[in-house]
Amino acid sequence: MKTALCALLLAAGLPLSARADRLPLPADAPPAYAAECGSCHLAFPPALLAAADWRRVMAGLDRHYGDNAALDADTARVIGDFLARHGGNADRYANAGTPPRLTATAWFQRKHRKVPSPLWQDARVRSAANCSACHPQAEQGRYGERDIALPELRHRREH
């Protein structure tokens, strides 16, 4: 399956950056996205949640995972349009839950299935939304396994 997918990607002539461990922000990201969403957490790659789920997130910014992240209407529209343009495949990123969490999707869970559960509560991590704790180059869109910061996880990979 993986081989077939790789072959398909090669056939389509997709650049390396299209691989799942490279998730740079789309070039048309409005400055408000990093400024507003990227202050309290990583400016998440919009492809990690389906467009319909992003719409639900944007509809509830005044109760945003325990914080008030309300925006003025113009800023909310610019960011909402951007997220809707780049939202991911609804099947691949299914089961985001209510409120939608990109860390709950089928894709995220599969990708992180080898992470021991206590590690999510580790003081260095604190939250599954803290991508940079394990992926130090997440802000540059790099999520490759070779870059993982926590030694326990590197060890786990090798065995």
């Binding site: 309290c40 957490h41 990583l42 995972y65 325990g66 914080d67 991590v125 604190r126 939250s127 939304a129 803290n130 940079s132 704790a133």
Partner: peptide
Amino acid sequence: GRHAITGKD
């Protein structure tokens, strides 16, 4: 500092 919910620096 560090965000109390997300852990972001």
